[in-house]
Computed example of a mutant assay.
Amino acid sequence: MTTITAAESGTWALGGDLPVRRMGFGAMRLTGTAPFHQGVPRDREQSLRVLRRAVELGVNHIDTAAFYFSQTRSANELINTALSPYADDLVIATKIGPVRDVRGEFAAPARPDELRGHVEENLRQLGREHMDLVYLRLMGQDSLAEHFGALAELREAGLVRHLGISNVKAAHLKEALEIAPVAAVQNPYGIDRRDDETLTLCGERGVAFVPFFSGAKPGREAQGGGEEHAAVLDVARAHGVSATQVRHAWVLGRGEHVLAIAGTGSVDHLEDNVAAGAVRLTEDEVRTLDALAG
């Protein structure tokens, strides 16, 4: 049986100079089984195997954050342990802005003057001298100017190579682009949750659009526990793949600038996610799935 690698998903140059496979890996699920890792910690050795297998399968874009931690697990520490010394082509992105206390509860967003400390904490945990890509993750703010301006200063200081924004609207992207170049936007997006205005604007401006929860079934608020659409299941049967693979394939089909960061704590699920990059939906199938927008 031929192993399908991330190369099947194609390549995009983040920021114009960091080529990454369009099927990447999200580290959020490595540390726990509940939202933001407040549940049962993942088996450490299994998480390390997942990371090493991802790289073996050609994944060279990993998304993480210092606030991805559980009582006994840190996503950044796992990445450092599993993959350091890092391959030259491995791109690691992180997010800053949200603050979690030692109990794992979210507090008020970081102030602009605190963002340097957030970047430095990621660098320390990952064992890096600079970050390839840092997202400013908004938590309901109307304007990102002050925070994004502070992050842009860290880029000028050499701590950050490229800048991104997360959990934003199209207006936020326009605001950010007036301050500094934006390499990527990371937002929730999938068959059941659309923001085509932001996705389209990213394509027009040469900005990567990086969906999260792209493989989740209906009922995201219940951790994707809802019933799958019959249409998704029909397409999956036609291709001999899983419904999750169909969802990832649909997302990747939204544009060459769209990058998936499918997350999992299972090697088997990882291999399925990566293989989604080889699924080619027909025009009729795409139209059918397009019509499922809620």
Rank of each mutant, 00 (worst) to 15 (best):
A7E: 15
E8W: 04
S9E: 00
A13R: 13
L14A: 05
D17Q: 12
L18K: 13
G24N: 05
L30R: 07
G32D: 14
T33Y: 02
A34E: 15
F36L: 13
R42I: 02
E45Y: 12
Q46I: 12
L48C: 13
V50G: 04
E56M: 01
G58I: 02
N60G: 07
D63N: 12
Q71V: 15
R73V: 10
S74Y: 03
A75F: 03
A75Q: 05
N76L: 03
T81C: 09
T81D: 15
D89G: 13
D89Q: 12
V91Q: 07
V91K: 06
I92C: 06
A93C: 10
T94C: 09
K95Y: 07
I96C: 08
I96G: 05
R100W: 12
G104D: 08
F106D: 09
F106K: 15
R111W: 04
R111S: 12
P112I: 07
L115M: 08
L115V: 04
G117V: 02
E121L: 15
Q125I: 07
L126Q: 02
R128Q: 09
E129A: 14
E129Q: 14
E129H: 14
L133K: 06
L133A: 15
M139Y: 11
S143C: 14
A150I: 07
L154W: 05
R155N: 01
E156W: 05
H162C: 08
L163G: 03
L163Q: 11
I165F: 11
I165Q: 04
V168L: 07
K169T: 14
K169L: 15
A171P: 03
K174V: 13
A176D: 10
L177M: 15
I179F: 11
P181V: 05
V185F: 09
V185S: 00
N187V: 06
N187Y: 04
Y189S: 02
G190S: 11
D192M: 11
D192F: 15
R193L: 14
R193G: 05
E197I: 06
T198L: 15
T200D: 10
E204Q: 13
G206K: 10
V207D: 10
F212N: 00
F213C: 03
F213S: 03
S214F: 03
G215S: 15
A216C: 10
K217H: 11
P218Q: 10
A222Q: 10
Q223C: 10
G224A: 06
G224C: 02
G225W: 03
A230F: 05
V232S: 03
L233D: 13
D234G: 09
R237M: 05
G240E: 11
Q245C: 08
V246T: 07
H248N: 10
H248K: 01
H248G: 03
A249Q: 02
V251P: 01
V251F: 00
L252I: 03
L252T: 00
G253F: 05
G255P: 06
G255C: 06
E256R: 14
E256D: 14
E256A: 13
L259N: 05
L259C: 11
A260I: 00
I261G: 00
A262N: 06
A262G: 01
G263K: 00
G265H: 04
H269Y: 13
H269V: 03
L270M: 02
E271R: 05
V274F: 08
V274G: 00
V274N: 01
A275F: 05
V279I: 12
R280N: 13
R280Y: 04
D284T: 13
